[in-house]
Design a protein around this nucleic acid. Structure first.
Lengths: 241, 241
DNA sequence: GTGCGCAAGATTGTGCACAATCCAGTGAGC
DNA sequence: GCTCACTGGATTGTGCACAATCTTGCGCAC
């Protein structure tokens, strides 16, 4: 096994064992790895390495990569393989605009229903995030922060929108990694908590407006005019795109 | 070649020859066939039949079917094959709710820009639709009617939303086929023309509101509480879902 | 030292054959 | 007549091997 393969095996191993019985959870593992930023934009995803890492047939790996490619989470170049996607500025703007539209829909649904159990579930998510953030686990906190949006979409009851939010949050993770500003999140305030309060009180308009602002604030916290320099072997990859 | 295979070949042939050079336009052909209702919900899509129809390898066909399955346009049952999807009531409601949210976003973008060339392009689409409808080509008119929404999404400039509208319009085609009311579209009025006028005049709020109403009107024109009886061989297929 | 060409190795793409599973038709038993 | 088990055919799933393509490293000419 080559050195590069060992590396990929390690990345996949550190969460749960890749000794998978099910078929296409190779997809889920790769998806999670991208969302958690264990796989960074531009890294090459060699089929054979993933075969060794997951212990499933090459067909399954190829299918998972193709699906991720259709979902714009990996870039697929014929005869050259799959690479973790590196969205450009235009794509980033589209993603945020789409999130504004779609999550306005999920927020409206949640605020209208105002189910107490749903609210409790969301609060639970926030509490965990605060705890992790206080403990300095930044990556896990980011993961849960995205998870809040996904959970909200799921609780809206609309599976179509929930699936889209899931994908858009994942793409946002890539975007944040590539465009994040050096100056951290200075005036950061927890919109999620306010959002839930609006939903509980049935202030639908307020909740929707806050969600839109919240997403746009994430966008404006980035330096979208300047993508982070990509690591060396990506230059050739994404130059030819 | 079996009789069933000949049938599928025929369906695929009547538009453009399947002698395809490109790889995954098998996907596009199947997609169009579903949108145009040449392939009706529940019909089985046998791999070998499609291989003969398109003249591409089985791998490409399998990939196309898998993609359509992820897009919820076909139902994929392991070891049993792929069938054109037959959405149920819940899924139909989700699709319409998602369209309301997403197309509100595309409409807002188009209305804000109010680009004259964009408007002309949309009007061209409407004119063609009217012409076809006057000539009694109902299916082509329906196709263009859906195409209006897709075109509007593309012209909004947001590729993420445009892609979603493309898929949701396709699913709507299946839904309309399954739930359409016997009593036609009685009080049918052309919202598309009004929509463009609002956009041209820069009445963003009006345009968005009309789009939302328009989609909900399509939904309410259906009998969503009663799905059309599916043809015989589907009973077994979708009963086990 | 730099650029070019070539060859060896590595990686992806694809057809083929066989295994696993499902489906339809038949016939025995009640 | 009806139900159930069985068998032959058809369809899908998968590993394997080879072809096509790309990458990398080396050597040579300038």
């Amino acid at each position: 096994m080559s050195q590069k393969n060992k590396q990929l095996v390690g990345i996949m191993n550190d969460r749960n064992r890749p000794q998978t019985d099910d078929a296409d959870d190779a997809y889920q593992h790769l998806f999670d790895a991208i969302v958690d930023q264990r796989l960074l934009p531009g890294t090459k995803l060699t089929e054979m390495a993933l075969v060794e890492a997951f212990g499933v047939g090459r067909r399954m790996i190829a299918a998972a990569l193709q699906r991720l490619s259709w979902e714009k989470l990996v870039l697929f170049i014929p005869n050259r393989g799959a690479y973790v996607a590196a969205p450009d500025t235009e794509e980033a703007l589209d993603v945020f605009a789409a999130r504004v539209a779609i999550e306005a829909g999920t927020t409206e649904a949640v605020a209208r229903a105002a189910d107490p159990r749903v609210m409790a579930s969301l609060r639970d998510n926030i509490a965990k995030e605060h705890k992790l953030r206080a403990q300095g686990h930044v990556r896990e906190a980011i993961h849960l922060s995205g998870g809040f949006h996904v959970k909200m979409a799921q609780l809206s009851g609309n599976r179509v929108l929930a699936e889209q939010v899931r994908l858009l949050v994942a793409r946002t993770s890539l975007i944040v990694n590539l465009f994040e500003n050096q100056t951290g999140l200075a005036g950061w305030h927890d919109h999620h908590e306010d959002l839930i309060q609006h939903c509980e009180a049935g202030r639908v308009e307020k909740a929707v407006a806050l969600m839109r602002e919240h997403i746009m604030e994430i966008r404006d916290g980035l330096a979208l005019d300047r993508r982070r320099p990509v690591s060396f072997d990506m230059i050739r990859v994404f130059a030819t795109t």
